[in-house]
Design a protein around this nucleic acid. Structure first.
Length: 456
DNA sequence: TGAAATGTTGGGGCG
DNA sequence: ACGCCCCAACATTTC
């Protein structure tokens, strides 16, 4: 019997995997394929933290496929058309990706395969709703979150599919995962990552989180606590599907915490559909007025920011958490982004690029849309004059400085009163930098720049 | 999913 | 007892 090729991409799971499910239904032997096409993506390459995650996630998937995952490296379309010919495959099946370059590549590949006499079936495994499904009254894609969310919330999500109970997998030659060198060496900066990639771990993260979801609305803002789900990298790589998360939350309880959490899944969908309908937004502001905005270069400031050496405790704590653990609490992401864009006047793309490289949950749509949101140039964005004061944010959300002290040990002995502004302490710490920007001056500069933009 | 400036109110100290 | 001032505390507006 002719095999079916299942092409895995950002759906590294067996349960609720529509492409795999459909392939198993045919009764044909299955070729489970993953192609590493780094160095060829028109948008951008995988970031370092993403490569680390991918390595471990592929290892986990391979294990659950009883070591039958076929690894190939190179141009995905060329590899798949060739492989389909060599194996005499009857069909190729995959779950759709929605990033602009992926859409273009997959459209061409599908045409090539069909021309070659190979059936192609594609599915939605990554989103609750297709990016073209939810429309405004005028029939256009949403640009404002709240009406988008109202439309989305009014629908129930499709029910997740079970994992296949049995399947026949076909073994083929392929690369060794280790040979891809996805893991960092010299130095191994991932030693502080406290993550376990893989489908099993994703399910555990979900079920560890559910008992706390009723407190999510307030607990999610406190960066020293585990008040968030930490599902983002699992969702990005599709180790768990948004349908599985949605259903689990909906059947768990109806607290306002649960509702707030569902809304975050809404933001994920909102970002995905924004990028789908605005492919240029990875580099260009959605709000065209910002095209002439005068960003500063600020190489030294950018470097201090990336290294967590700005002298502003909550910012440095966040940037060091990112570097050490591959992740940053969302409240702190907003604070560090606001400082870079507003106080330092540096382009949101510079911050976005750093996050892309360092985050285990790096997701093109979410990363770009949220950076544009902070910059005020995105869809439904925060106005440019909404400027976070990192001292006040710190005092509000990390009042005892537990989070700051965890990642900025230089401040361990600083009294609570000065933990978020050590420069004002009677004895400022010797081994911690003075702030690279005066917060009041930085704020004033940002407001002036915004005024200039409005007038031009 | 802000912050700062400005405006308003009302209680208490004090001459 | 009264008016005046000060200034939290809260509300509104402005950026």
């Amino acid at each position: 019997m002719k095999p079916v090729i299942v092409w895995f991409r950002q759906d590294l799971r067996l349960a609720d995997n529509p492409a795999l499910h459909a392939a198993v239904q045919t009764g044909a032997p299955i070729v489970a394929l993953f192609v590493l096409d780094d160095g060829r993506a028109p948008d951008r390459d995988l970031g370092g933290a993403s490569r680390w995650w991918l390595h471990h996630s592929l290892a986990a998937l391979d294990a659950s496929l009883k070591k039958h995952l076929v690894l190939r490296r190179g141009d995905a379309a060329a590899i798949i058309t060739t492989l389909a010919g060599q194996t005499g495959a009857q069909a190729v099946m995959w779950n759709r990706c929605y990033e602009p370059s992926a859409v273009a590549r997959d459209t061409d590949l599908k045409a090539d395969l069909v021309a070659q006499g190979v059936e192609v079936q594609t599915f939605n495994g990554a989103l609750l709703h297709e990016p073209w499904e939810l429309k405004t009254g005028a029939g256009k894609p949403f640009r404002v979150f709240t009406p988008f969310w109202n439309a989305m919330r009014a629908r129930e999500a499709a029910r997740p599919l079970p994992a296949p109970r049995a399947m026949t997998l076909q073994r083929l030659d392929g690369d060794r995962l280790d040979a891809w060198n996805l893991l960092p060496t010299r130095p191994d900066w991932a030693t502080g990552f406290d993550w376990t990639p893989g489908e099993k771990s994703a399910q555990e993260a979900l079920y560890d989180f559910l008992p706390h979801i009723a407190q999510y609305r307030t607990a999610r803002d406190l960066p020293d606590r585990d008040g968030t789900s930490r599902l983002s990298p699992h969702l990005h790589w599709g180790e768990i599907s948004p349908r599985q998360v949605w259903q689990a939350v909906r059947t768990h309880d109806h607290s306002d915490g649960a509702e707030t959490f569902l809304k975050e899944l809404g933001w994920r969908e909102f970002c995905a559909q924004l990028l789908f309908h605005n492919p240029g937004m990875t580099t260009n502001p959605l709000d065209a007025r910002f095209e002439k905005f005068k960003w500063r270069t600020g190489k030294k400031d950018l470097s201090a920011w990336t290294r967590g050496q700005t002298g502003i405790p909550i910012v440095d704590a966040g940037m060091r958490q990112l570097w050490q653990t591959g992740w940053m609490h969302n409240r702190v992401r907003m604070i560090v982004a606001s400082l870079l864009i507003k106080h330092l006047g540096i382009h949101w793309r510079d911050g976005e690029a750093w996050f892309w490289d360092c985050l285990v949950d790096a997701d093109l749509a979410s990363n770009v849309a949220n950076w544009q949101w902070v910059a005020g140039c995105g869809a439904d964005a925060a106005p440019f004059f909404r400027i976070f004061n990192p001292v006040l944010q710190g005092e509000k959300f990390d009042p005892r400085g537990v989070y700051v002290r965890r990642f900025v040990p230089e401040l361990a002995a600083m009294p609570d009163k000065f933990i978020h502004m050590p420069w004002a302490a009677p004895q400022p710490p010797r081994n911690y930098p003075a702030p690279i920007v005066d917060l009041a001056e930085g704020r004033a500069r940002a407001l002036a720049a915004f005024q200039a933009l409005k007038q031009s």
